[in-house]
Design a protein around this nucleic acid. Sequence first.
DNA 1: TGATTACGCTACCTTAGGTATCGATACCTA
DNA 2: TAGGTATCGATACCTAAGGTAGCGTAATCA
Lengths: 193, 193
Amino acid sequence: MTATTPPARPPGRPRAGLDAEVFTATLSTVHEIGYARATVERIATATGIAKTTIYRRWPSKGALIVDCLLDAFGPAPLREGADQAELMSSTIRWIAATIAEPGVGDAFAGVFSDAVSDPALREILSARLQDPYRLALQDALDEPENRVLFFIDVVVGTLLHRMGMTGEPMVDADVDALVAMVLPHFARDVDPT
Amino acid sequence: MTATTPPARPPGRPRAGLDAEVFTATLSTVHEIGYARATVERIATATGIAKTTIYRRWPSKGALIVDCLLDAFGPAPLREGADQAELMSSTIRWIAATIAEPGVGDAFAGVFSDAVSDPALREILSARLQDPYRLALQDALDEPENRVLFFIDVVVGTLLHRMGMTGEPMVDADVDALVAMVLPHFARDVDPT
DNA sequence: TGATTACGCTACCTTAGGTATCGATACCTA
DNA sequence: TAGGTATCGATACCTAAGGTAGCGTAATCA
């Protein structure tokens, strides 16, 4: 048996492997013209494929954006062996840096806003994007669910509010302030270095 | 000259005084069916007026919502003589309580999201809603602009993120946690009572 | 009574999310 | 090489909602 289990590929024409291209085109389109004007039609054109192909793979624009954000964030960089303060600090900076990447902050704020009045999208956002990172953080930080949810509300909420009100990601100095504010409130082992 | 300058009423049929009714209908409609489904048509019908009358008074749905929020928040309750910690604490609780009122949180999160990809609306939101309170806070707290903006990002961002992700306003225990986290980071005169 | 302005109504335009259909194409298997 | 199957591109279409135009009517002042 080979290393990868033979996929037992289903019959028929296989899907073209262009999810990565769609994600790239989505972020660059959102970055250039904003979330609302980045229509599915334009994203498809930017990718070089048909709009119907997008809808064959994602059930809605929101679901596409969520997958795009999952791809942009990737796995949470939770170093083993780090203490709680280090983990929180690096997590905040990782989220801030990713949101600051071109298109990511706009896409995040945009899909978040759509979710406000779309329960189905809110479920997708919560289950596919927030929950995996929340569970990983609960485990790594050894904190209960409600504390981690509060942590996410503070960090993501603050960063998105800045992005939404100004159109620009939060500058490093303010991210430092965010870290300085959050850590003492959570850390059990405040290292006064 | 009399106390109030004679309005020198312009000729023609005067406007019916129904802004208050429109605001009430807007919040209750948003509360019942959500921000996106609360169309201008439905808000007008709920008020008992024509959609075109709404558009004669507000240039866009976003502008209507912003005025509606201004009416809901009213003037900031900044007590004279209170120290900085008291002012911050009461401000946070005032914002949290107002956002928790039926329809206000949904409307706020909704218009905020729309503003993400609409620079004109962002300008309205920033100038008409955020700036007045920001200036009042700068004065009352004696803090520079960037610190007050950071304060608003944290407080409003956190509350809206909770509202957007769960559909419910933040519970009192978490508002307490927000106060407990924010105060030590800002307060110059931490009163260890 | 006339001028002026707001209101209600209807019709309409535009954008954008999302769906249906159909011929062409790519891949596997017999 | 032929057949089966599923994807792709293209086109046309539906629907909801923001927003506008025009017109007759109602209210107020001079």
